[in-house]
């Protein structure tokens, strides 16, 4: 499971499961102490792991 803010670059590597957080360098899981967004991102990752996927799958947060 890859949590990235650059889905273009991560996509080139064909990581199978990508959570695109749309943040910026140095904070792929969002702003400091924002537990709500951190949990939202991780939960999205968990759900994607539980899904059966057949090719690279990107979830945009």
């Amino acid at each position: 499971m890859c949590i990235t803010f650059r889905k273009d670059i991560t996509g080139l590597a064909r990581a199978p499961r990508i959570i695109n957080t749309g943040t910026s360098a140095g904070k792929p899981l969002g702003n400091p102490r924002d537990k709500m967004i951190q949990r939202k991102i991780i939960e999205s990752g968990f759900r994607l792991l539980e899904e059966g996927i057949e090719d690279m799958t990107i979830i945009n947060i």
Partner: peptide
């Protein structure tokens, strides 16, 4: 040195979400 450390210095979980995972 190619990213700003102010976020991770304030909260490790911005990059390395160990506390959130401990909660899970």
């Amino acid at each position: 040195k190619w990213y700003n450390h102010k976020f991770i210095n304030a909260d490790l979980n911005c990059v390395f979400p160990i506390d959130r995972m401990r909660e899970y």
